[in-house]
């Protein structure tokens, strides 16, 4: 029952936040270092091409390689290259994409809005719907609706995204002709090729985004439903829920205050961590099938074209989002769970 002073609690809470921030920094550094090492070991397709053509035309392949490296600044000790690589990444100089003939960062900046156009709505819909249905299932366990939700969830998990996307395109695009089959970036852009707010929210653009959102949502909503059902079930049976019932609390308030709130702690983990993963892994196939020029398509094309700098660029983005997401999740714990111990003594 010994109560620490409030300021000591505050110090500990801030200490916790700072330590989480530092860890996010360390994680980023580790990822960058691993990336650098991998890049060192990766044969450079362009150098190989240069050496090959030099040899063909009777020149010295080694000399051609030296020249190319000097031209690209790819010289110096390993340590010098490593520090330069780090400072470049930090200062936003992510290299040159040979396949897109533009800086990697620029290629990413063009692609990311397209991914967000279907990713963000899908994230919101699957979170809200998934948790609502999961909660409903838990409160009406083994009812007909619960079974229906379970069936839906397992279908969502089992059906491969790319296949579902194709089927939807065939049915709604070809048979019913409700949505366009070819993704048209023009409807969201002005004449200069820049995205406009009016264009993004135009009917034509929204219509072509419906199917990608549906496909991605059915994939990610299922696990959310199952998790929130399981979490809520744990609390539906909890002693303190019975206490609340005995106290005369209404069913609605029991759900909102006594079940949802404590269940939100484990659900926060799922939300940020897994969901981001699902969305970004899922988006490769979804984008390629629908022809959306987003991050997934960019990454896919970078790999196909052996554009090393761009490949790493497209991998960095989800990686950093995951790091930031995990950070946000740690910070949300500090707010959501009073039992969390902020590090040291307890």
């Amino acid at each position: 029952m010994q109560q620490p002073q409030w300021w000591w609690c505050a110090v500990k809470k801030w200490g916790y936040l700072v330590s989480r921030l530092l860890w996010a920094g360390v994680a980023t550094w580790v990822i960058l270092t691993i990336t650098f090492v991998l890049m060192e070991f990766t044969p450079n397709a362009q150098y190989a091409q240069l050496q090959f053509s030099a040899a063909q035309s009777g020149g010295d392949p080694e000399q051609a390689l030296e020249t190319a490296k000097r031209l690209r600044g790819d010289t110096g000790t390993l340590w010098a290259q490593y520090t330069e690589f780090l400072s470049n990444i930090v200062s936003g100089n992510w290299g040159w994409s040979t396949y897109r003939s533009q800086p990697v960062t620029e290629a990413l900046a063009t692609a990311i809005p397209w991914s967000m156009m279907y990713g963000v709505p899908s994230l919101i819909i699957s979170t809200v719907l998934g948790m609502t249905i999961g909660l409903y299932s838990a409160l009406n366990q083994y009812s007909r609706e619960d079974y229906a939700a379970t069936l839906f969830a397992f279908m969502g998990i089992s059906i491969p995204n790319f296949w579902f996307a194709i089927i939807l395109l065939v049915f709604f695009g070809t048979v019913l002709n409700w949505v366009p089959i070819l993704f048209d970036t023009g409807v969201a852009q002005n004449a200069a090729g820049n995205l406009t707010l009016g264009g993004v929210f135009s009917l034509a653009n929204l219509r072509q985004l419906i199917l990608p959102v549906v496909v991605l949502t059915t994939g990610s909503i299922a696990s959310l439903m199952r998790y929130s059902r399981a979490e809520a079930l744990e609390y539906v049976e909890a002693d303190f829920v019975k206490t609340a019932r005995a106290k005369g609390v209404s069913d609605r308030m029991i759900v909102l205050k006594h079940i949802l709130r404590p269940a939100s702690i484990p659900l926060a983990t799922l939300l940020v961590g897994d969901l981001l993963g699902i969305i970004f892994v899922g988006s490769y196939l979804v984008e390629v099938v629908f022809g959306i020029p987003g991050l997934g398509t960019l990454s896919y094309n970078a790999i196909i074209n052996q554009d090393t700098a761009l490949v790493f660029g497209t991998i960095f983005v989800p990686t950093f989002i995951a790091i930031v997401g995990n950070l946000a999740q740690d910070l949300s714990y500090a707010y959501l769970d009073p039992r969390i111990s902020f590090g040291d003594d307890e």
């Binding site: 909890a238 002693d239 303190f240 019975k242 206490t243 609340a244 005995a246 106290k247 205050k257 006594h258 709130r261 404590p262 702690i265 959501l336 769970d337 009073p338 039992r339």
Partner: peptide, 17 residues
């Protein structure tokens, strides 16, 4: 009609004061 239950460890909601 009020109730007091067996297990005080679980009888209070952990996230509220």
């Amino acid at each position: 009609i009020a109730h007091v239950f067996q297990n005080p460890q679980g009888a209070l909601n952990p996230v509220y004061t």
